[in-house]
């Protein structure tokens, strides 16, 4: 299997994740789409590590996994806080900073 297929898959997943971030109204679904985008970046790192034969890419994916776990914890804590404030996770009603 040639490398272009994997990079194409990564690009398509990035587009799907970005589409989900733009289109969703639920804050939890936006964070899920962010996870899709982070996974596509991880695929890209592994593919280019395989192309160049350097293992640093896989080490970077390990760091990215740790950061994604931290991001998920803090992000969902913030969503719980917003849910207590607004009694909903609909992001279209969160407009307190608008004037």
């Amino acid at each position: 299997m040639n490398p272009e297929g994997y990079i194409l898959l990564s690009a398509i997943l990035l587009a799907i994740g970005g589409y989900g971030v733009i289109v969703s109204r639920n804050a939890i679904r936006i964070l899920m789409s962010l996870e899709i985008m982070m996974n596509s970046a991880n695929i890209n790192l592994v593919v280019f590590s395989r192309i160049t034969g350097d293992l640093s890419g896989q080490v970077f994916v390990t760091f990215s996994l740790a950061i994604a776990a931290a991001e998920a914890g803090v992000g969902f804590a913030l969503i719980l806080l917003l849910f207590r404030l607004y009694r909903s996770v609909d992001i279209s009603i969160m407009d307190k900073l608008k004037f």
Partner: peptide
């Protein structure tokens, strides 16, 4: 996909952290 790319360690870590922990948090 990580297994297909011969990154078996990352595949195990992916299942442990993402499919295990992050899914439970979600």
């Amino acid at each position: 996909i990580f297994v297909l790319l011969e990154a078996e360690f990352l595949a195990v870590i992916q299942i442990l952290i993402y499919a295990g922990a992050v899914t439970v948090i979600v």
